[in-house]
Design a protein around this nucleic acid. Structure first.
Lengths: 195, 195
DNA sequence: TATTTTTTATTGACTAGTCAATCAACAAAA
DNA sequence: TTTTGTTGATTGACTAGTCAATAAAAAATA
């Protein structure tokens, strides 16, 4: 029952299906048929809209990044103080939508893929840089220049590390304790100011 | 030119080849032929000694874990104070042999695989538990019980996070700065004692 | 010691299965 | 009648795993 104007609907459905398929099966070695099937279409249609499998995967990664960026922008908008800005960035990283095991699984899979694919690596670098600058936008006002950079790197590494642990499920660090751990790090950093 | 007593030699060569192939290509989707070829034998021989591909991969992971464990044991032996113990664990995680991009790439690939494979997940849990207990063996004497646990979790997450960043190469955190970052975290934790 | 037999090492060729990508064909809307 | 949406069938490439065959070393036997 072909209706016109399906393209955006199908694209979105395929990307969503790609995320959950990758997250569920844990890895990028998912087949076009699995993804297409979950989106309720044939694999031929997936190729029709995205060309090669790689293109669909890249579009998926881009979608993940865009979603995270948009959440971060939103959260930063309402943060009043510098301290709030840092907490906002941390909170977004572990927000319900981002910290879902499926999503985390997909993120991790893309991290691995980035080792092979320069295109993916570029995308991830964009994310890393934005995270850094978002963190610095608050930390800059709270710590001396050098300390702020170290703190930003530390927080970023902590976030990535907690993501990995989340992806492994079982004895999963939940959202709350993950946030607490990072906030605790930040707090000790702020307290040792000037030492 | 068949000589007798080749089994251990081949096994080791195949495992080494697996590590570098996985690390170089970034992912577990390497073929038996690639691994065997790098080890200088036919793919049939790899199957002869390891059975299925999965078995070779598991043996490889086990080898990685065993090597890390042995290095850690060695380092802890010479640590005199509690503080030294913690530093020793950190140092081992970023030692030259462990922090090689190839090795790190392989580690990351196994992390992803662990999402699918319960066997791999079990192995990784062994690693996580040992890391935790090694850290606690020092931290226990330096911090209050609760704080020690938080610090151990934080250090572990930092290590994993820095590994990920290392795997992505380019703007790589080198060994020295990675150690410094973790040590700095530990230091601030210790200083805020009793706060 | 000379020989046969067994064990160990090794591979090329093959099988069976999977999957990305293509394409011709069909259906509904414009 | 042209455009848009859609799929089943097919192709071509690749790969895990098997197997029969070969050859050297070691063990057993004469």
């Amino acid at each position: 029952m072909p209706k016109v104007g399906m393209e955006p609907v199908r694209r979105r459905a395929l990307i969503d299906a790609a995320i959950s398929t990758i997250g569920e099966r844990g890895g990028l070695d998912v087949t076009m048929s699995q993804i297409a099937g979950r989106a309720g279409v044939s694999s031929a249609l997936a190729h029709h809209y995205f060309g090669a499998k790689d293109d669909l995967l890249q579009a998926t990664m881009r979608h993940l990044l865009a979603e995270l960026a948009s959440e971060a922008r939103e959260a930063l908008k309402t943060a009043r103080t510098a301290r709030d800005r840092v907490s906002a960035v941390i909170a977004v990283s572990f927000s319900a939508s981002q910290f879902q095991p499926e999503t985390v699984g997909a993120w991790l899979a893309f991290y691995v893929e980035a080792q092979k694919s320069p295109a993916m690596r570029r995308l991830l670098r964009v994310y890393a840089r934005r995270l850094h600058s978002d963190l610095m936008s608050g930390l800059r006002h709270l710590l001396a220049a050098e300390d702020a950079i170290v703190a930003a790197e530390g927080i970023a590494a902590l976030i990535d590390g907690l993501y990995i642990r989340r992806a492994l499920k079982e004895d999963t660090p939940d959202t709350v304790s993950a946030v607490r751990l990072v906030e605790d790090y930040l707090e000790t950093k702020l307290q040792s100011r000037g030492t």
